[in-house]
Amino acid sequence: MTPYAYFSLLQGAGVTVALSLLGIVIGVPLGLGLALVRWARIPVLTQVIAAYVSVLRATPLVTLVLLIFFALPSIGIPIDPIPAAILTLALNTSAFNCEIWRAALIDFPKTQLEAAQATGMTSSLAFRRIVFPQIWRTSLPSLVNEMTLLVKVSPAIAVIGVVDITRAAVRIGAETYEPLPPFLAATVLYFVILLVLVRVQRSLESSTARKFGSA
């Protein structure tokens, strides 16, 4: 492999990290929002979100990105490859994140909420002070788990012309007729990215443990 080949893989890594991060930054809070609406049993919206989650979890990423990229312009919404890729990743991960947050909310002890109400806390104050710090700790491992999955399914977005790590490796293999070396290098890059993610999780976990005591 030429020095440029390594450089192009690193560029691909930049794209993979940037798009996955954006997907996560949008998808994690969106998932929380969706889970809260379901938790609060807001009529109609609750059913719509349940359907949204069911459909998105069942849609393969390649299908979703092709739909967004080729179908949205057909109904008059032009979209470029990069925004389409970010939207795809965010929508996909938000469905899974919604269920992670919801699991933590379902399991939240209602006695604590009753105690908060008894001391006169408003709903939003109780959420910020009582509910969120606890469901955050419960959900973190599952959320990071979903993030690692998202990074690894992200090569699907290459189908609309976004050059991520895997596509960069394909290009090198196609030029040299030797696909194995670039794919091995790509594997190392994915490994490093996931290692960093897990490190972040560990440090977040230990900092919350210091703050609130171990779970």
């Binding site: 938790w39 609060a40 059913q47 359907a51 069911s54 459909v55 379902i106």
Partner: peptide, 26 residues
């Protein structure tokens, strides 16, 4: 926002119906 003191549940039949509608739209 109201915080419910009861667990949320949605009838599975309604979910299936709404999911089918969304799929059809897609």
């Amino acid at each position: 926002m109201t915080i419910p003191t009861r667990r949320t549940s949605v009838a599975p039949g309604k979910i299936a119906l709404a999911a089918a509608l969304c799929l059809t739209a897609l």
